[in-house]
Design a protein around this nucleic acid. Structure first.
Length: 586
RNA sequence: GCCCUCGUAGCUCAGUGGAUAGAGCGACCGCCUCCUAAGCGGUAGGUCAGCAGUUCGAUUCUGCUCGAGGGCGCCA
């Protein structure tokens, strides 16, 4: 291929693509029969290895029956000349290391300034993607474990959206099951207590103070409307027996005695919890586009339809009075019940209907963010989707591991049912939203997270979130000292005065941002963005300490201002994706 | 027993089919007459748990062993 076939690059355009074209041209001449070899360009860890490195020669050596270094020499000889490449050197086992010209290295600054808040945004992918996360039962305040799912899901959604997908965020409200009944009956029993009735509060009912508060509200608003004598209630409850049976008896008694009143209390506590949950999440910067009701799946017959669909496909059978799904035919370790012997559908049944409904709504990809304790659930849901004729590969389940809180080096013990746990709201109030959001992203989601309260609260250099925000504030501080209108000229500043290694390193970091967005989105790994921002801040702080921005020489001053401004832009873009604020001063 | 996640510096954790495996904290030595010291520079610290395999090349992929945590309901 003649070298003229490689187009002259636009400054600031995709240099990686340009280098790939150069290598492909060389490949066509050195090994025309290997033209489909994948061209891989990586960013070397060491600065002495240039700006980009290719292992193409190592890949080709075997089939060409030639030593890697010899192949590399031939490739380099055939590389078309490029105005962006200062040198292409052979090193190590046969790597080709590209060093860019100073202009090519700094060109990214203008690209950042031109794109602004859209720098790093991926091309539209024309694929609709839904992220479902948190989806905690509306039976009590969110705790720090839910907080991790919320922070992860929100950052992941933003990242996927920024990378080019059309993203919808959804919260699945489990408003149909026994847990809601237990919350309603718990509230009613507290209400009776407040009205002066003496009866034992079941140990397996919801113990939290918020239940007492809801009972108080009902009493204030409705007086003794829902009052029934303790004796009438207790008459329905077996003397002994297992606690779950007793709790169910309390629920039956409440339904019988209250009639329509039961529906009021049930609906009231549900509304209260959803409202509280939504406010908590919005306060955390976590927004949902859709709050999807599980009960609506029953009301519209979707659950029965889903089961009928599996039945029609011959995937169900009856045994011991229950209806089973033959999930072992789809790789699950045992078959699963979809309808119990008492005629009630299991959670699994509504979950099948739910996921089929998601596909009906036209999403190309479903992402479910679940607590790690649900991992055994993946194979059966995917199996059911396959059985129903849907493609299970379009469902990606991401498991988020547990959170342990540490205070003064001691683990804070938590127990959900007893009501003794640290809520997300308490955590936010104590350490602040920014530190919370950032700390949740400091660990891969599939690893258990130890949340150090003292470190998260520390207003010091130990705290990575302040380290990143400080870089942003420092840049703002410099810009605040400019004369009127001086910043306007920066966007088109001549960049040749940037000649220090730290400046090139910072430019390279900025240039990595778009690739990082794509990779992190592909891997569902928003933590990679948090780590990138730490690295970017470190590159900036290092440069800031070594070189002064506001120097007298106007050309140097303009060039450095441009670099500072571009850095601030990328810090902003990254922090906002993570839901962390970008303070102007600290 | 089966399944999942994991094992990387004293501690907490990133990372990768590639070259001399990184960061923060802790330790030690330094840097404000200077755009914010919530900052920076340097030193010390490693059998990437172990064994075998695939590969031109394995800390990364595969298998096994050891160790840690979690999950295995006609609950949600």
């Amino acid at each position: 291929m003649p070298s003229s076939a490689v187009k002259n690059p636009v400054p600031g355009a995709d240099i990686r693509h340009h280098l790939t074209q150069l290598l492909r041209a060389a490949l066509a001449s050195v090994a025309p029969q290997q033209l489909d070899t994948e061209i891989i360009l990586e960013r070397p860890k060491q600065a002495s290895h240039g700006d980009f490195a290719s292992n193409l020669a190592l890949q080709l050596a075997r089939s060409l029956k030639t030593s890697p270094r010899q192949v590399a020499e031939r490739l380099v000889r055939e590389l078309p000349p490029s105005p962006l490449v200062a040198s292409a050197e052979i090193a190590g086992a046969g790597f080709i290391n590209f060093t860019l010209t100073p202009a090519a290295r700094t060109a990214i600054i203008h690209a950042v300034l031109a794109a602004g808040e859209n720098f790093g945004r991926g091309a539209r992918k024309h694929r609709r993607l839904q992220v479902e996360f948190v989806s905690a039962n509306p039976t009590g305040p969110l705790h720090v474990g839910h907080g991790r799912g919320a922070a992860y899901g929100a950052s992941l959604s933003s990242l996927l959206e920024f990378s080019g997908f059309a993203v919808e965020r959804e919260y699945y409200v489990n408003d149909a099951g026994r847990q809601m009944d237990i919350l309603a009956v718990s509230t009613w029993l507290r209400y009776l207590e407040r009205c002066g009735e003496r009866l034992p509060f079941p140990p397996n009912a919801y113990q939290g103070d918020y239940v007492i508060e809801m009972a108080e509200q009902i009493a204030v608003a409705h007086g003794t409307t829902y009052l029934h004598p303790a004796a009438a209630v207790l008459a329905c409850i077996p003397e002994s027996g297992d606690p779950d049976a007793r709790l169910d008896a309390f629920i039956v008694a409440a339904k019988d005695l209250l009639g329509d009143g039961w529906h009021y209390i049930h609906q009231h506590v549900l509304n209260e919890q959803i409202t509280d949950c939504r406010a908590d999440l919005e306060g955390f910067g976590v927004h949902f586009d859709v709050w999807f009701s599980e009960r609506s799946l029953y009301d519209t017959g979707k659950v029965a339809q889903a089961v009928a669909l599996l039945q029609a496909g011959g995937h169900l059978y009856e045994q011991d009075g229950a209806l089973w799904f033959r999930s072992t035919a789809f790789g699950d370790e045992k078959d699963r019940v979809v309808r119990r012997d008492n005629g009630i559908y299991t959670y699994f049944a509504s979950d099948i209907a739910y996921h089929l409904n998601k596909f009906e709504r036209g999403f190309d990809i479903l992402v479910d963010v679940w607590g790690a304790d649900h991992h055994g659930y993946i194979s059966r849901v995917k199996g059911a989707l396959a059985a129903a004729g849907a493609d299970p590969r379009r469902l990606d389940v991401t498991l988020v591991q547990f959170v342990s809180l540490f205070r003064d080096g001691e683990k804070v013990s938590m127990s959900t049912r007893s009501g003794e746990y640290v809520t997300l709201r308490e955590l936010r109030n104590e350490v602040g939203n920014d530190a919370c959001r950032f700390f949740y992203m400091l660990r891969k989601c599939d690893q258990a997270l130890d949340f150090d309260l003292d470190l998260a609260k520390s207003q010091s250099n130990d705290n990575p979130v302040y380290y990143v925000q400080y870089a942003h504030a420092r840049i703002c501080s410099v810009l605040a000292q400019l004369a009127e209108g001086e910043a306007d000229a920066v966007a088109t500043a001549e960049l040749a005065p940037l000649t220090h290694e730290r400046e090139y390193a910072l430019c390279q970091r900025l240039a990595e941002f778009p690739e990082l967005i794509q990779n992190a989105a592909r891997d569902y790994a928003p933590h990679a963005l948090a780590f990138y921002l730490k690295d970017l801040a470190a590159d900036f702080h290092g440069w800031y300490n070594a070189e002064r921005v506001l120097v007298d020489d106007s050309a140097t001053r303009q060039a450095r201002l441009a670099l500072a401004l571009a850095t601030r832009q990328v810090l902003r873009n990254g922090l906002s994706l993570l839901g962390v604020s970008q303070p102007v001063s600290m």
